[in-house]
């Protein structure tokens, strides 16, 4: 180990944060860029499935709540792009990687939102799963990422609560509303569990990320936490648990559950989800359509500067 590497590892082991200007191994930087940008892209692409229901929200209150929630996702994307930019990559590079498929985003957003209840299920389950992961990431070793996570966690609990509240209204509503809620739960429960990633034994980046304290808890541990906390929440809604094998294990102090359909997981990751193409096309289309606006801004700015210079002369 070089003295630089030793110094770096000493900080990691002492739970000191790594900050932007510090020396860091190239692999650490790359690993961080991969994880943070993927996280940022997930927030941004995540605007689409819920955004799909803003214009159809069934009450003005729900419309305002959903709009501010989706807006928060954009905000979180911004915090994360901002954290990632401190590592020496520009936002446009990151966006290009997203649009060309070089960078990934969470597969959960490749599932379609088919009914209003899906908005509730996403807030409750998808944001719920994200929070479990993000709470853990508040202790990540890279300073800007950690601070971003702390900020995001503070805002995210509103997301889960509004989703659960929307589900509650449906579950306690008409038979049609309740059926809608059950259907959404059935469809989003499994993909939400998959959000924690493959089993640790199969995860390509897990070990190094744990060593560098980029990740603080394993995929399976976090998933277990989520499984455990969700049982009671389903019960309170009065809905049926989608996993027929869910069973309390006294010895482990955790719920036992069915294994996931990993073929589906890999299939969606590899582009075969309902919405993979649609999500990227939407992003590209909005981005391309914004081009002339961004051009106009820089042209205007250029003219303004020229005018200022002329006035000064």
């Amino acid at each position: 180990m070089t003295p630089q590497e030793e110094n770096f590892m000493r900080k990691i082991e002492a739970e000191e944060k790594i900050e932007p200007k510090d020396w860091m191994p190239e692999a650490y930087r790359k690993n961080l860029i991969r994880q943070i940008s993927q996280h940022a892209h997930s927030e941004v692409i995540g605007m689409q499935p819920e955004g799909n229901w803003i214009t159809r929200a069934p009450s003005l209150r729900r419309k305002a709540v959903l709009l501010s929630k989706v807006q928060d996702e954009a905000g979180h994307g911004l915090y994360l792009y901002s954290a990632c930019e401190t590592l020496g990559i520009s936002r446009s590079e990151m966006i290009e990687q997203l649009q060309t498929g070089k960078a990934k985003y969470s597969s959960i957003f490749n599932y379609p939102t088919l009914t209003w209840a899906d908005v509730g299920a996403i807030g409750w389950l998808v944001d719920g799963a994200a929070i479990v992961n993000q709470v853990s990431l508040q202790r990540t070793s890279y300073g800007p990422y950690s601070r971003g996570m702390i900020r995001i966690c503070k805002e995210e609990s509103f997301h889960q609560r509004q989703g659960y509240e929307a589900m509650l209204a449906l579950a306690k509503g008409s038979p049609e509303q309740k059926a809608m809620a059950q259907d959404a739960l059935n469809r989003f429960y499994w993909p939400a569990l998959m959000m924690f990633g493959p089993h640790d034994s199969e995860s390509a980046h897990s070990q190094k990320s744990m060593e560098w304290k980029i990740k603080r808890e394993t995929n399976d541990d976090l998933r277990q936490k989520f499984v455990d906390q969700t049982v009671k929440q389903i019960e309170v809604l009065g809905l049926e648990h989608p996993d027929k094998n869910i069973k309390w294990n006294e010895e482990r102090g955790h719920y036992d559950s069915s294994d996931l359909n990993w073929d589906e997981f890999w299939s969606v990751i590899n582009g075969n989800g309902h919405c993979n193409r649609q999500r990227i096309e939407h992003h590209v289309a909005a981005h391309d359509e914004g081009e002339w606006v961004r051009d106009a801004i820089s042209a205007y700015n250029e003219k303004k500067r020229a005018k200022k210079a002329q006035n000064a002369a």
């Binding site: 605007m47 803003i54 709009l67 911004l78 909005a286 914004g290």
Partner: peptide, 9 residues
């Protein structure tokens, strides 16, 4: 209707 269709984030 502009949400997720803006010219930048």
């Amino acid at each position: 209707e502009w949400v997720s269709y803006g010219p930048f984030l």
